[in-house]
Design a protein around this nucleic acid. Structure first.
Lengths: 337, 337
DNA sequence: ATGAAAGCGCTAACAC
DNA sequence: GTGTTAGCGCTTTCAT
């Protein structure tokens, strides 16, 4: 298999070292409790090097009846940078545990999903991470139940499936607190129009922060906006009318649109208006002028935590969600009041 | 292995169907040239369903001495949306050929890279795609040569390795032509400061387009800029001084910075200045106002083509590069002159 | 048209 | 300390 035609097997190594395959197996795997003479050991090692031997993990998996594969099904590997982060987090954490990730991209197609799951099961994955790039509730695809599974950035009510999701409520609170901490007391919230855990959660967190700070809850300050640049751009006038001194945008793209609109009106951030975003989408938040203060969606950590839960390293009860923190990322778009 | 404890094997299916494992194997794989009675066939099929049998691909791979794995080592899965696209392209193309992708993320760390390669070889991959998120020349890691390999978005001079890369020259020409087609004849080019195939290639393409259109080559119009928002922002005055009516930006981020600077000066795009970007980074290009006309970097296609080359479906001579087109993405940032 | 048996590369009792 | 042996789940001659 090793390109040059010939596959070097353990038996050949054994022959060359003048020992049995067992011995070779023992020294290669550093079997504890098995003592092998130093001389034999080095002879085996030498033979391995000489022959360029590589163990065949597939054979090992077969005999041990267990694989080191973990499946990751994602609904959109690259439509967004988010899924990529989830994959990377899962990838690296899996790696750390000596596992390898089988990634399948379904683009939300049910048939592709079925294929992906079948493939993973055939490869004897020891578990499956089922992820969504957008935090949402969903129903589990048939087949998923055949392996141990953990949902990432999504959850399935009433299924007993464990899930790892961002803590939207705490995130909404964090964003609002960043503003309050600078003395703002009239804060507009450009929330998304689409119903989602993000919408509900961030709003709740926002309110909690206001209440905690003894600020009034004014529903007029919560305005609907499409969760994109256009939404922020279009909502600018509304925010200005409201007389808010600071705005919490549902995501960084909304903030970007708001930036544009304000600039067109000759207004300056953060002098005239403080802005905080959400997501920490690097291309945007890191490079707007001024750079955007925001709250990070912990996609990497979501993926990594998913693996940990799957491997039993982190305890989550059936049907429960592990909520991952959304940390504040202060930059330059918030001025003291 | 199948979660519920018990693994259903082929032997059990055979027993239940009252046939031999050979027969089961035959019907499951639809072995050509082997005729099996319709009744037996359906009995086997039924047993498969009843027992919820899933073939163990690992065992199959072992006996056949060949795996359906293809390795993909990437230097940055998610630092950029680009790597994600390469992975997705490779993933889907591999899938189409019944292959499964083993993805490893190295973040440009040499040790991680060695590990990744070793792992892939141990998993008996039938080939390896070695990719870089930024188009560049590099030296091959040891180990890569042990399997058939194809470079994606990078190349290794003097190694005989086949590569799949974007056609930077044609891309530079395309961008410039988009401007020329609208009557612009004084075009500034904000090129990146870092030496790279992108820098050299796009410049060459830019020049070719000018020459072809009978326009003068004025080196003063080619100005250096950091390949980020800041570069575009800072270069604005220079571009204005030059009296250009259109600007070709090295990438979309540069264009974004330029947008900001122009807006601050009360200038409008495209009325006062036409702009074309490069990369087609959706979050940016699709949502600036006005939406940015640009040239796409074909990351998805790069990944897919890499797989095709690896599988011998697309012919590339040793040491040669397959150049993939960078298509124009017209939006609203170019006005006729 | 179906089955018996050998063996893929490796591990794990159990012998010696 | 090291070797013998029996499989892991599957495919594949070769018989029948």
């Amino acid at each position: 298999m090793t390109e040059n035609g010939r596959t070097v097997t353990m038996r050949e190594v054994a022959e060359r070292a003048g020992v049995s395959v067992t011995t070779v197996s023992h020294v290669i795997n550093d079997k504890p409790g098995v003592r092998i003479g130093a001389k034999t050991r080095s002879r085996v090692r030498q033979a391995v090097v000489d022959l360029g031997y590589r163990p065949n993990i597939l054979a090992k998996n077969l005999v041990q009846g267990t694989s080191r594969f973990i499946g990751l099904v994602a609904d959109s590997i690259a439509t967004t940078p988010f899924a990529g982060q989830i994959i990377r987090g899962a990838q690296e954490e899996a790696w750390r545990h000596g596992r390898v990730l089988l990634v399948a991209n379904t683009e939300a197609d049910a048939a592709a999903e079925q294929n992906a799951l079948a493939m993973m099961l055939e490869y004897q994955v020891s578990g499956i991470l089922y992820s969504s790039w957008t935090h949402q509730a969903l129903t589990l695809p048939p087949g998923l139940a055949e392996a141990e599974h953990v949902l990432v950035n999504c959850y399935a009510p009433g299924t007993g499936a464990r899930a790892v999701v961002p803590d939207e409520v705490a995130g909404g609170r964090t964003a609002t607190e960043m503003l309050i901490a600078q003395g703002h007391d009239r804060i507009a919230f450009l929330n998304t129009t689409s119903p989602s855990p993000a919408r509900e959660g961030r709003l709740r967190g926002h309110r909690e922060a206001l209440v905690e700070a003894g600020l009034p809850l004014d529903d007029a300050l919560v305005v609907d906006a499409l969760p994109e640049q256009e939404g922020g751009y279009d909502a600018a006038d509304r925010v200005l009318e409201l007389g808010a001194t600071a705005v919490f945008c549902h995501n960084d793209r909304v903030a970007m649109g708001l930036y544009d609109a304000l600039r067109e009106r000759g207004l300056r951030i953060p002098e005239d208006l403080s802005v905080v975003g959400f997501d920490n989408q690097e291309v945007i938040a890191g490079h707007l002028r001024p750079a955007l203060s925001t709250v990070a969606l912990p996609h990497y950590e979501l993926g990594a935590a998913g693996i940990r839960v799957l491997l039993g390293e982190e305890e989550v009860a059936p049907g429960q969600q592990l909520r991952v923190d959304c940390p504040p990322i202060p930059r330059c778009s918030i001025a003291p009041r």
